[in-house]
Amino acid sequence: MVKEIEKTGIPVVHMCTVVPISLTVGANRIVPTIAIPHPLGNPALPEAEEKALRRGLVTKALKALQTPVDKQTVFEE
């Protein structure tokens, strides 16, 4: 899915947990997430902390979208 949307020229950031699959399917901007059932959250955390965690991940994704890349890139930090 990532590739087909990216083909239109719109940058796509793929937020997912199993990064190797994302690499295999060919996403160019990848942000690793928390866990499969809750990629952008962690039910074990208090609500405010969880939202802060999510905001951190989304910020990372936005940073990826603002970063020029010429090959598949995993935005670890």
Binding site: I10, V12, V13, T17, P39
Partner: peptide, 9 residues
């Protein structure tokens, strides 16, 4: 739209 965030589980 200028950019997409695609999330997967």
């Amino acid at each position: 739209v200028q950019a997409v965030i695609l999330t997967s589980t």
